[in-house]
């Protein structure tokens, strides 16, 4: 479903050349729940941006659902993002002036979907996160956890190939974070692939597979759930 081969991402300024990702190869299959961990500045966000088609790669190959996205135009990448990828952001990134219904409607409108179908999908998505009754509310009337649920509903409403979650619990207290993680597990159990970027190793243990990045490369071996506690202990010491 997602296959990166020898992907490099270099940021250049007049003075500095920064290799954010180097020879990065990774394959993620359908239905997986993969966590991406690593210290600050290791390249997690760069990976997320490239995986989510938010940035282009400098070299290498990225196959998304069999399509080589390395050479796509900005327009084609926007269309592909809209159809295949659902985003969950750390700060929720909801539109503060739009009510919940209109917020979730945003990706569907860009897809050019009919109003009746959009309404059906939005109601269904809001119902799945338990917020259907509040669809006329604006984000500021909700708690942080509820806002992230709305963001998850927005990510799911387009029935994407996979969800890209960027520190999805980073702005939530632990109780609320657990609730959000439970919701993500439910979504994954229903067959949706989830790629979650986090620096929280405790959260990463809840994924089926972890990919640890260090200095823009995958620090081998790829950790299994059993290894997490050891890794956590290493980082903690």
């Amino acid at each position: 479903m997602l296959k990166m081969t020898d992907v490099c991402k270099v940021f250049r300024t007049e003075l500095v050349e920064t290799h954010a990702l180097s020879d990065f190869s990774l394959t993620i299959d359908e239905g997986e729940f993969v966590s991406i961990t690593g210290p600050s500045g290791c390249g997690k966000t760069t990976f997320l941006n490239i995986a989510g088609l938010l940035e282009t790669l400098t070299s290498g190959q990225y196959l998304l659902d069999g399509t080589d996205v390395s050479t796509l135009s900005d327009f084609q990448r926007a269309k592909l993002r809209n159809q295949k990828i659902g985003f969950i952001f750390q700060s929720f990134n909801l539109m503060p002036d739009l009510n919940l219904f209109d917020n979730i409607d945003v990706p569907l409108r860009y897809r050019g979907m009919k109003a009746s179908e959009r309404k059906q999908r939005i109601d269904q998505a809001l119902d799945s996160v338990g917020l259907l009754s509040r669809k006329k509310h604006v984000p500021s009337q909700l708690s942080g956890g509820q806002q992230q649920r709305v963001a998850i509903a927005r990510a799911l409403v387009g029935k994407p190939l996979f969800l890209l979650a960027d520190e999805p619990t980073g702005n939530l207290d632990s109780n609320t974070a657990h609730g959000v993680m439970d919701l993500l597990h439910e979504i994954n159990a229903d067959g949706t692939t989830i790629i979650m970027v986090t620096h929280d190793l405790e959260l990463a243990t809840q994924s089926r597979r972890n990919v640890h990045i260090l200095d823009g490369r995958i620090s081998s071996p790829v950790l299994t759930p059993v290894d997490f506690h050891r890794e956590s202990a290493t980082v903690g010491s």
């Binding site: 989510g52 938010l54 900005d74 327009f75 926007a78 269309k79 993002r81 809209n82 159809q83 985003f87 952001f89 990134n93 539109m95 945003v106 990706p107 860009y110 897809r111 927005r154 387009g158």
Partner: peptide, 16 residues
Amino acid sequence: RKQIGTRRALGATRMQ
């Protein structure tokens, strides 16, 4: 600006 970036992430083309 961040909302615009979010819209772009959610699939808005430049023309949209």
